[in-house]
Amino acid sequence: MPTPADPGPGVPADGATEPAHPTDVPGVVGQRRSVRDVRRWRRYLADERAEAAAYRDLASRRTGEEREILLALAEAEGRHEQHWLDLLGADVGRPLPGDRRTRTLGWLARRFGGVFVLALAQRAESRSSYGTDADATPSMAADERIHEEVVRGLATRGRNRLSGTFRAAVFGANDGLVSNLALILGIGASGASTSTVLLSGLAGLLAGALSMGAGEYVSVRSQRELLDASTPSPQASAALPDLDVDANELALVYRARGMSAAEAETHARDVLDTYTAQTVIAPAPSGDEHETHGTALGAAVSSFLFFASGALVPVLPYLLGLSGFVAVAVASGLVTLALLATGATVGLLSGTSPVTRALRQVAIGLGAAAATYVLGLVFGATVG
């Protein structure tokens, strides 16, 4: 994870001193120990300490298996810390703070510890420079790659719990921002009065929010019903004692669920040989599928509220009494800020670049609104 900045030639910063052993690196025969090397190692050391502390802080907010996994990650960072301590020897100097990103991660871990923090940790692990640093061992570079996957797995649990409602919230907010801005700009460009623009914006807010809420409820409810229809029937287990072992039609169940004919025959015979009253044909869904899609009511309410809040943003200038080009400029500016925020949030949660996702949201949103504005100008000119 550590990615120290190149300090450049000259005297080391942050209180570093000239190397105590300027000829060789301890344990690495024949390799000269430069001021730059010492500074880089001290930065690595500071980052490893900060990362280990962040994982311990995250572990303190969890229980069970997740806590054990996070503590194991902190222990692994401690092994990396020891590597840099061994290299530095007498040049370890006073402790340095971790880099800005690592310190931010630690601060968030101490105060929040949710899926957003895990997503940040996942992204931080992906930035490790150990793979290209000759002073880091291959096992350390491999550790960092595996750490990224471990954190990704932990973050995925939280993403699954959030994704249904979160998807509805993000989609609702962005749809409200873009659709209502496009509506207001299109009507305003056609030459309509300020009161007409305001009324259209409020009508678009209410109609869109109701439509989004109803649509999300039907969508999520239908998806859950499809998942329920795929859940094995518990009554089927009652038929197991009466099955003909030679015909073994139970094998057809497993073949229908994706096993090969040979695997299905073997598994079905094993099930019948070890049958108990608790035996079931196939395990019921764990609930992850339902968590991924969220509850129908939760998605509907979230979509309604976030669409309404997004659609309100471009209406605000008109509610405050602005009109004409000033209202258009203010509405566009407010929507741009909101799109930047939602795009960055999606980027953080997905473990990707928040800047890239934010700019993508702005480009798509303002592009759609600009197209509608041009159509409004054309329509207004035609009518006139």
Results as ranks from 00 to 15, higher is better:
residue 355 V to R: 03
residue 234 P to S: 12
residue 199 L to R: 02
residue 135 D to Q: 15
residue 131 G to S: 09
residue 103 R to Q: 15
residue 37 D to E: 08
residue 88 L to T: 05
residue 379 F to V: 15
residue 341 A to F: 04
residue 168 A to S: 13
residue 57 D to Q: 12
residue 4 P to E: 07
residue 142 A to V: 08
residue 337 L to N: 00
residue 190 S to M: 07
residue 130 Y to A: 15
residue 68 E to C: 11
residue 158 G to H: 06
residue 280 V to Y: 07
residue 205 L to E: 03
residue 24 D to S: 13
residue 102 T to R: 13
residue 275 Y to L: 14
residue 106 G to L: 15
residue 253 V to N: 09
residue 98 G to C: 04
residue 30 G to H: 01
residue 22 P to C: 13
residue 77 E to W: 10
residue 207 A to R: 08
residue 77 E to Q: 11
residue 25 V to F: 01
residue 313 V to Q: 00
residue 107 W to G: 10
residue 186 G to S: 08
residue 230 S to F: 10
residue 371 A to Y: 08
residue 263 E to N: 15
residue 311 A to L: 09
residue 180 N to H: 03
residue 118 L to S: 03
residue 62 R to I: 04
residue 353 S to A: 04
residue 165 T to D: 02
residue 368 A to P: 11
residue 253 V to A: 13
residue 90 A to Y: 07
residue 297 L to I: 12
residue 154 L to D: 10
residue 335 V to I: 04
residue 235 Q to P: 01
residue 54 A to M: 02
residue 63 T to F: 02
residue 154 L to V: 14
residue 210 L to G: 06
residue 312 L to Y: 00
residue 380 G to L: 01
residue 143 D to Y: 02
residue 119 A to D: 11
residue 115 V to R: 10
residue 13 A to T: 06
residue 251 A to Q: 14
residue 205 L to A: 05
residue 159 R to P: 07
residue 3 T to V: 13
residue 295 T to A: 04
residue 278 Q to Y: 06
residue 218 V to E: 06
residue 315 V to L: 01
residue 29 V to Y: 09
residue 255 R to S: 14
residue 76 A to W: 01
residue 173 A to P: 02
residue 316 L to C: 01
residue 149 E to A: 13
residue 322 L to E: 01
residue 85 L to R: 09
residue 60 S to G: 12
residue 83 H to E: 12
residue 118 L to C: 14
residue 189 A to T: 07
residue 86 D to A: 15
residue 348 L to S: 04
residue 377 L to C: 04
residue 261 A to Q: 14
residue 199 L to C: 05
residue 336 T to H: 00
residue 84 W to R: 04
residue 321 G to N: 06
residue 322 L to V: 06
residue 156 T to V: 12
residue 100 R to W: 06
residue 230 S to C: 07
residue 204 G to L: 03
residue 60 S to V: 10
residue 82 Q to F: 02
residue 338 A to P: 00
residue 189 A to F: 01
residue 347 G to W: 03
residue 9 P to V: 11
residue 167 R to H: 10
residue 361 Q to R: 02
residue 350 S to F: 04
residue 107 W to C: 15
residue 263 E to W: 09
residue 328 V to C: 00
residue 344 A to D: 06
residue 207 A to Q: 07
residue 171 F to K: 03
residue 77 E to A: 12
residue 257 R to T: 11
residue 102 T to Y: 10
residue 133 D to P: 10
residue 113 G to Y: 12
residue 293 H to T: 07
residue 193 S to F: 01
residue 285 P to Q: 09
residue 64 G to F: 08
residue 262 A to T: 15
residue 226 L to N: 14
residue 218 V to Q: 05
residue 233 S to Y: 13
residue 104 T to Y: 14
residue 332 S to D: 01
residue 142 A to C: 02
residue 315 V to P: 05
residue 339 L to C: 02
residue 196 T to D: 03
residue 315 V to K: 02
residue 110 R to S: 15
residue 332 S to R: 02
residue 237 S to C: 09
residue 378 V to I: 15
residue 112 F to C: 14
residue 238 A to Q: 14
residue 279 T to Q: 06
residue 96 L to M: 09
residue 92 V to L: 11
residue 200 S to F: 03
residue 354 P to S: 08
residue 176 G to L: 00
residue 45 L to E: 08
residue 163 S to Q: 13
residue 103 R to M: 14
residue 166 F to I: 07
residue 214 A to P: 05
residue 174 N to E: 05
residue 360 R to N: 05
residue 309 S to T: 14
residue 113 G to S: 15
residue 9 P to D: 14
residue 93 G to P: 10
